[in-house]
Amino acid sequence: MVDIPEHLLLRSAEARAKALGITVEQALAEMKGESAPTVVDDEPEVIEVDLPTPVKAEAPAPVETPKVEEAPAKAEAPAPVETPKVEEAPAKAEAPAPAKAATPAPAKADTPEEVDFAPEVKVTQRLLTVVKAKPIQKAASEPVDKVNTWPHLMLPEFISLMAMMAFLILLSAILQAPLLEEANPNITPNPAKAPWYFLGLQEALSYWDPQIAGVMIPLVIGLIGFAAIPYIDRNKENNPSKRKYAIMMYTFFLAGAGTLTIIGVLFRGPGWNWTYPWIDGIWFDDLLDWIYFE
């Protein structure tokens, strides 16, 4: 047995003594196993009403009869515990149950139909409505057909990356990036061209006022206009056949920007005059090593 500290034992003995109405010493002795535990039978009896011999049914009631010889030594006179005076404890199985318990039992056993298990319960419910069984929360979205990211997404992704890497290395091995003479602010090349992605803009600059072409187009159309697209286009459809106007507008933009860029890259020569690349050659240094028309 685990050693229980004395003060804890004492505390629980006090609690037990208070609960059972016995002395602390008695409780302590019981807990230490020096005396048989006191039994209080004021708990409600479980009565098996349909048994013909209720006395037998109660026979195994936990009547751990303390020895009469030992009991007086503990001075348990004030205890309300009914300690049945039985001569021999082992015979308790055959012995009749404590008188208190035995007396009401036969009466109930005789009239089992009168047993009222819950006399206070009256039938008070009535049918108000019938509520269909359905979940309280409604799923917001339909279940979608999904696949595992690994391997169905990551494998094609990896292959794409490798293909792109191979393409880039091959391109870099074949095409030399341009490097002209050292920068010289005193020698202006003719024409001086911006990077290719700005050449559409530079081309537009040759048509319109610089404040329109150089500022309004990139800033108002390019940045603000493009960022505002989702707030302008309130059409919820994403099927191309149901958003023909938006697609048409974007395609116009693509075609316009593409045309301007191609003109700027290939068809503009000295003095920003119109040239044909197959006649006058390329006037765009980034492309010089790529394409030869001669």
Partner: peptide, 21 residues
């Protein structure tokens, strides 16, 4: 790279930015 291509392309780009009102 600080070659003629670089400096003049950037000059053109910077001139475009200078048209900001």
């Amino acid at each position: 790279p600080w070659d003629q291509l670089a400096i003049w392309a950037v000059t053109v780009g910077g001139n475009m930015a200078s048209y900001t009102p």
